[in-house]
């Protein structure tokens, strides 16, 4: 199991080493020590490897990830797993703003809380936050699911498209065009599957959640909706 110490080697060398790995590599499990809040650690990975980071990371950790599994044993800065395409990113601590921003696929799990704009413009990713999320989360979220075991801040799901939001706790306020929707069996099944994928199978009751989605009133520009903008 290779270990890479960022205290003694530059980030570019770590990322280059990981980029050079082929899909059939035997070096599938990497440990990174001494991250010290550096930015873009393990960003742009494109191989089915797992990378475990011991400590806190800065901006854009695991950004644009494909295939890889990245575990952060610490807190994550702005834009963790931004624009992820596939794979699995797990933050053991808290995450800052814009976690999972614009991510197209894969799964992002945050054990702690996430800051503002969690899942902003998400395009297909599944995000599971075990704590609470900040204001303007899922702003203009297009596709995927955002599941929150705690509470959501102000203006949840503002200008939402087709993403599905499941929140177990309270929602301070809903953004424009975001409404509470009925939880039907298909939604409970979907939620169960997402909880299971996040390692919470059977631990959490999907029926405790409320579902939020788009009222689709803003899908076509209409001057009568001007007050909503």
């Amino acid at each position: 199991m290779p270990t890479f110490d960022l205290k003694h080697s530059p980030l570019r060398e770590l990322n280059r080493t990981l980029y050079a790995l082929r899909p059939d590599t035997n070096e599938t499990h990497w440990t990174v020590t001494g991250p010290d809040g550096r930015h873009a650690i393990a960003a742009g990975l494109d191989a089915p490897i797992s990378v475990e980071i011991e400590g806190n990371v800065g901006y854009y950790c695991a950004g644009m990830n494909k295939h890889a599994s990245v575990l952060i044993n610490g807190n994550a800065g702005v834009g963790v797993a931004e624009n992820m395409m596939s794979g699995f990113v797990h933050v053991r601590g808290d995450a800052s703003q814009a976690a999972g921003a614009t991510a197209h696929g894969g799964m992002l799990v945050i054990d702690g809380n996430a800051g503002a704009r969690c899942g902003i413009s998400m395009k297909g990713v599944d995000i599971l936050v075990k704590g609470s999320i900040g204001h303007m989360s899922a702003f203009m979220a297009q596709a995927g699911t955002l599941t929150v075991l705690g509470n959501a801040g102000e203006a949840l799901g503002d200008s939402l498209y087709e993403a599905r939001l499941y929140v177990r706790g309270s929602v301070k306020s809903l953004g424009s065009d975001c409404i509470e929707k009925e939880m039907r069996d298909e939604h409970r099944e979907q939620l169960f599957a997402k909880l299971q994928a996040g390692g919470l199978a059977g631990e959490i009751d999907p029926s405790e959640f409320k579902r939020y989605g788009s009222a689709r009133r803003l899908y076509h520009f209409n001057v009568d909706n001007a007050g909503a903008y």
């Binding site: 570019r12 280059r16 960003a43 901006y59 702005v78 931004e82 614009t102 413009s121």
Partner: peptide, 21 residues
């Protein structure tokens, strides 16, 4: 969606440079 202001822009540029070597 994931950066605001010139200090963040610098970090975003750094990320793009990392990813493209």
């Amino acid at each position: 969606p994931d950066w605001t202001g010139p200090d963040d822009l610098e970090i975003k540029i750094e990320e793009l440079r990392e990813i493209t070597g």
